[in-house]
Simulated assay, not measured.
Amino acid sequence: MAVAAIAGGTFAFKALDKSVKLVVDGKTQSVSTYASNVEGVLKDANVKVVKRDDLTPKLTAAVADGGTIVLNRARPLAIDIDGVHSKKWVTAYTVEEALSQLGIDGGADVSASRSQRLPLKGASLEVTTPKTVAINVDGQAISVVSTGATVKDVLDAQSISLVEGDFTTPAVDTPVTSGMQVDVTRVRTTTTQEAQPVPYSTSEQPDGTMNKGDKKVVTKGVAGEQVVTYTVTTTNGVVSAKTQVSAQVTVAPVNEVVNVGTKEAPVAAAPAPSGSGAGSSGGGSNAGAIPSSGGLNWPALAQCESSGNPKAVSPAGYMGLYQFDQRTWNANGGSGSPLDASAAQQTAIAQNLYNARGISPWPSCGPKLLS
């Protein structure tokens, strides 16, 4: 009877023994236990549970033979998301699961492998979430989704290179934000050469054989040639600066030399007006002596044009001894009105006109100048 009692007790004891599957942070072990609830099983397995841990089922839940207990222990996670630092507690035991618990986009760029296990003592992660960025480069507008942390990272991912002189707005080290616009500016500096004329200068020298007011070109000026070197800066293909670096004269200019008369012109008495000269206003009076100049017969020309009257005005509006219009008078050195000038002054301006155009301004009377 004693043997039977012992045997019966053994069977009863065996009946209370259970085999429970315990999964801790993804690792499974089998626990043989007489405990009636989850808390007892964990105690038998020497597994402690703290407040932030995730336990299924709860501590007070009953356990049966063949049951399963899942424990995911909490661990601290120092995380940097797009430059924002924070500390989180997660019950995930891999990086992938931690990101999922925190609701971070699956396309985010992470500083560690997603399959890496997280130790109980904690870990640090840097996360860059995908962002939409608009890029203006080389005349094109590009929209990209990037996990680059900085503007440079975004450009590198698109194989957009920068060379010396290029720059971006904002700068390449600027952290990326969603909706950011990046403008790439290309700056190039080249050297170019241009052929340009070299202007000549004009000098005057006195000539005692010529009357005052007379001028004669003795050496005609000729422009030279030079090669001018520039540095040219373009910004996005448009010239933004042009600076001369050097100039090399290849053909020297020939400077112009002009002789200027210094001899006083002789003064001749003006003939009495006949009242029948070309352009005469009629009834004019002699207002002063008419000087001769350079061997030319100015009195004869004046007599023909105006009957020698410095105040003569023709019906067509021509004025003075030599019947100037106002425009011709001004163009040849005259000032004011010819009618206000002396006979000598009018003759000096007529001399200038003759030097420039010969006798052509006086088609009818001009030959008398040469008589």
Score class of each variant (00 low, 15 high):
5 A>Y: 11
5 A>V: 08
9 G>R: 15
9 G>W: 13
9 G>L: 14
9 G>F: 15
10 T>C: 15
11 F>P: 00
12 A>R: 03
21 K>Q: 11
25 D>Q: 01
30 S>E: 14
32 S>F: 13
32 S>K: 13
34 Y>S: 15
41 V>D: 14
41 V>Q: 02
44 D>P: 02
44 D>N: 14
45 A>S: 00
45 A>R: 01
52 R>Q: 15
54 D>K: 11
57 P>S: 01
58 K>Y: 14
63 V>C: 00
63 V>W: 10
64 A>V: 14
73 R>Q: 14
73 R>F: 03
76 P>N: 06
79 I>W: 02
80 D>M: 12
85 H>P: 10
88 K>C: 12
91 T>F: 03
96 E>T: 12
98 A>L: 08
103 G>A: 06
109 D>I: 06
111 S>T: 01
114 R>L: 15
115 S>D: 10
120 L>N: 07
123 A>E: 13
124 S>C: 05
125 L>H: 01
127 V>Y: 06
128 T>E: 13
134 A>Q: 14
135 I>T: 06
137 V>C: 05
137 V>T: 14
137 V>N: 09
137 V>P: 07
139 G>K: 05
142 I>N: 04
143 S>I: 12
143 S>T: 15
146 S>G: 04
146 S>R: 07
151 V>W: 06
153 D>R: 06
153 D>G: 01
158 Q>I: 02
159 S>K: 13
160 I>H: 07
164 E>H: 10
165 G>K: 03
169 T>A: 07
173 D>H: 10
175 P>V: 05
176 V>P: 08
177 T>M: 07
178 S>W: 02
180 M>T: 10
182 V>W: 00
183 D>P: 12
184 V>C: 11
186 R>D: 06
191 T>P: 05
195 A>C: 09
200 Y>V: 09
200 Y>M: 11
202 T>W: 13
212 K>C: 10
219 T>A: 03
221 G>Q: 05
225 E>S: 11
234 T>H: 07
235 T>P: 00
240 S>M: 00
241 A>P: 14
242 K>A: 02
243 T>R: 07
251 V>C: 15
252 A>Q: 15
256 E>D: 03
257 V>Q: 09
260 V>T: 15
260 V>C: 13
262 T>F: 03
263 K>N: 09
266 P>H: 11
267 V>E: 14
277 G>T: 08
277 G>F: 08
279 G>R: 08
281 S>Q: 13
281 S>C: 15
281 S>N: 13
282 G>V: 06
282 G>I: 02
285 S>M: 11
291 P>K: 10
302 A>K: 04
303 Q>T: 06
305 E>M: 09
313 V>Q: 01
314 S>P: 15
318 Y>D: 04
320 G>H: 03
323 Q>N: 03
324 F>W: 04
325 D>M: 08
326 Q>A: 11
328 T>H: 01
328 T>K: 08
329 W>F: 03
331 A>D: 09
333 G>Y: 05
334 G>P: 00
336 G>D: 02
337 S>M: 05
337 S>G: 06
340 D>V: 01
347 T>D: 05
351 Q>K: 13
356 A>I: 02
358 G>S: 09
359 I>P: 04
359 I>Q: 12
361 P>V: 05
363 P>Y: 10
365 C>G: 08
366 G>I: 03
367 P>L: 00
367 P>T: 01
371 S>D: 12
